[in-house]
């Protein structure tokens, strides 16, 4: 018989109604989406994970290991320069992994692979599909920040017990930038347009959020002086808070500013999440 000619009987579950409890709650919907992304990502793990792991390490070796040989015993914000950069770079690598997932990758899923059509043709809702995606971004952020932390330890960077919370900072950072990336994607019509965002927004964030040098003077004052304006701008940047929080873990020190950073990070997460879902809804349900 010719293959698939319809000679075989229909599967039993198609002929006899079988009671089957569907797991339609929010948790399982998010799990389904998250599982898909993990499965696809792991299928090509080496190709996917090499650049986001290697890139921060190149920066780390070039900048921290390379430059610090010229700095004698100088402490940056209370940390040796290698630890200072390591704590900054693990936050920025979480940012990159989150942003990439919901800009280029999401755009491909949206316009070419039509992955979201397949998801939304089931009972999944828009907010479940994309929250699941942010959770996957967060997962990647947690893993990559931990990897950066572990590898920089090989270069002699010392950690504190508080550094077990590094993956939490990585998770929140990647979740936030996953949501921000999706907001951008909701406006983008051609994939080339993302370069405006990556070069114009993400690269400056990478350099000026305190990753490589301390930007903040120590106290937030009124923006009456240049110093005050710079401090305030820095405080508004979404990456600064992740950098400062991971640095607080490396220093094992917390103060009122740390609490302010937690608050700002959470605020950004909530706002970006809400805005991203609102925007993407109109884009996918045309």
């Amino acid at each position: 018989m010719k293959s698939g000619s319809g000679g075989a009987p229909l599967p039993e579950f198609m002929r006899v109604e079988q009671a089957c409890a569907l797991r339609t709650g929010l948790f399982w919907s998010l799990y389904g989406v998250w599982y898909r992304h993990v499965k696809v990502y792991c299928r090509t793990l080496i190709a996917n994970a090499m650049p986001p792991v290697l890139e921060p390490l190149f920066f780390f070796t070039a900048v921290a290991v390379g430059l610090s040989t010229y700095m004698r015993d100088g402490l940056f914000d209370g940390l040796p320069y290698t630890a200072f950069v390591a704590s900054g770079i693990l936050a920025s690598s979480s940012m990159f992994t989150g942003v990439f997932e919901t800009t280029y990758a999401a755009f491909v899923r949206l316009t070419w692979q039509k992955t979201y059509d397949a998801m939304l043709s089931t009972h999944l809702r828009v907010h479940e599909v994309f929250t699941g995606e942010f959770l996957f971004c967060g997962t990647k952020g947690a893993v990559f920040s931990a990897v950066v932390m572990l590898v920089t330890m090989l270069f002699g960077v010392k950690i504190t017990p508080w550094c077990v919370l590094v993956p939490v900072v990585g998770f929140a950072t990647a979740y936030l930038f996953g949501a921000i990336g999706l907001i951008v994607t909701s406006y983008v019509k051609m994939i080339n347009n993302f370069t405006f965002f990556t070069t114009g927004v993400i690269t400056p964030l990478f350099f000026f959020s305190g990753t490589f040098f301390p930007v903040f003077s120590g106290t937030l004052g009124p923006p009456t002086s240049v110093r005050g304006v710079v401090d305030l701008l820095w405080f508004v940047l979404p990456l600064s808070h992740s950098v400062e929080l991971s640095r607080a873990l490396y220093k094992a020190q917390a103060d009122w500013m740390t609490l302010a950073h937690v608050g700002m990070l959470l605020l950004y997460v909530v706002v970006a999440h809400w805005l991203a879902l609102r925007r993407i809804r109109t884009r996918v349900l045309g």
Binding site: C20, L22, R23, T24, W28, S29, Y31, G32, V33, Y35, R36, K39, A118, M119, T122, H123, L124
Partner: peptide
Amino acid sequence: VHGLYCGL
């Protein structure tokens, strides 16, 4: 993965 989307 589609089965999981469906809640199976």
